[in-house]
């Protein structure tokens, strides 16, 4: 039985990257803050449409060193919670989707675990299938308060209550 499961896993078509891109952007009247992470690991199961993203919080790069320091030490507490993980599923997925070249609009739902808190994320996304692989792109909103991220009163107006997250992954078949 284990052998059969192993064979199935080996046969399952997987699309992967370990250099995916995620940016978050906070807009407030006082300042705009953004940070980029270009070392995101992502796997799409081409048979089931299951999606997994994983990233290291310390890999987010800010323009200002001080912001990066506060982000890691005070807000995301990256020593204690070093990773963010999304596990989800493309809705109404068919394995034909990743074989048909062109742009496909899909809906994704899943659980995002960040700073020790897990919440459901629903987002529309685009999968662009080509001979080179599958390019996935999406945007969604996260709220710091949903992830128990405490913003001190002194800078509360500097950070948006809703943070825009942009994702772009160039997945290669493995």
């Amino acid at each position: 039985m284990l052998l059969m499961l192993g064979c199935t896993a080996l046969q399952a078509q997987k699309y992967m990257t370990k250099t995916g891109y995620i940016k978050f952007y906070s807009h407030s009247p006082i300042e705009d803050i953004e940070a980029e992470n270009e070392e995101v690991a992502a796997i799409l199961n081409g048979e089931t449409g299951a999606l997994t993203f994983a990233l290291l919080i310390k890999s987010f790069e800010f323009e200002k060193a001080l912001m990066q320091e506060h982000f890691n030490e005070n807000y995301l507490e990256s020593d204690e919670y070093p990773k963010a993980i999304f596990k989800g599923q493309i809705k109404d997925f068919s394995s034909k989707l990743v074989k048909e070249e062109g742009e496909h609009k899909v809906n994704v739902t899943g659980e995002l675990t960040l700073h020790g808190e897990t919440n459901t994320i629903n987002a529309s996304a685009t999968l662009t299938v080509s001979k080179d692989g599958v390019l996935g792109a999406t945007q969604f909103i996260v709220k710091p308060e949903d992830y128990r991220i405490r913003i001190p009163n002194a800078v509360r107006n500097n950070i948006a209550k809703e943070i825009e997250v942009t994702v772009r992954v160039d997945l290669q078949e493995r």
Partner: peptide, 10 residues
Amino acid sequence: DGFLTDVRLS
């Protein structure tokens, strides 16, 4: 920076 499927150095 930590560990995903591999150890990451940046």
